Simulated assay, not measured.
Amino acid sequence: MSSRSAVTLRARTDADLDALYLIASDLDTWEERNPGRPAARTREAWQARMVERDTDPAYSLNFVIDVDGEAVGNVGLFEVDELARHAEVGIALIPSARGKGIGTEAMRRMLEFAFVRGNLRRVHLEVIASNAAAIRSYEKAGFVVEGRQREHAWVRGQYEDIVRMGILRSEWSGAPAA
């Protein structure tokens, strides 16, 4: 990421649909983004699913990752537990945005939203063990490994471990001093 690039989170617009569909239709990285079997969706089916999710409160905390006015991915909270004050986070980037620090910065911004605006006390995620770049990025954002589910995911012809990571508001570097 260049020093001039500004990573922001914002609501989705119609202009973002091409970039977001590029992510959704990328079968090479399906397992990094989805727990289920890879499926090629038509653009129409994908858009219908987005419209359905827009009305589902469980998916209402989704943002477009914007770099200098262009959509390069999405990040969101789901499975929000209003009583225990925790949620799972998911993130995905277009191929040209990976490996540039954009995902780490977007995750930091998502954590700020979760802890400051959403009043959550814990955020967690799951990642396949072979996705070392993502694990490093999550660690840079403050996540710690909490556990591992052995051979839990079927990924490109073999079983892989799922690494569970989390961060507490008290561990978050943006937390106000006590």
Score class of each variant (00 low, 15 high):
L22A: 14
H86V: 01
R98F: 07
R108D: 00
I23Y: 12
D14W: 13
S170I: 03
A71S: 09
S96I: 11
L120T: 08
Y59A: 01
V163L: 05
Y138D: 01
F63D: 03
I91N: 06
G36P: 11
R148V: 00
A92R: 14
V75C: 01
D81K: 13
P38H: 06
A39G: 04
L77K: 08
G99S: 04
L125W: 08
S3Q: 15
F78G: 00
R10C: 03
I94E: 03
A178F: 09
R12H: 10
V127G: 03
S96P: 06
Q149E: 07
S3H: 15
D81S: 05
E44I: 03
S2M: 13
S173L: 07
I162S: 07
Y159D: 00
R4P: 11
D14V: 13
Q47F: 12
E146G: 00
S3D: 15
A129C: 06
L17W: 11
R12A: 05
W172H: 04
A15F: 13
D68H: 02
A133P: 08
R121V: 05
V67E: 04
G142T: 03
E160K: 11
G174D: 05
L17C: 03
R33K: 12
S5L: 11
A141P: 03
R136Q: 13
W30K: 10
L93S: 00
V75L: 04
L17P: 05
E31P: 08
A114S: 12
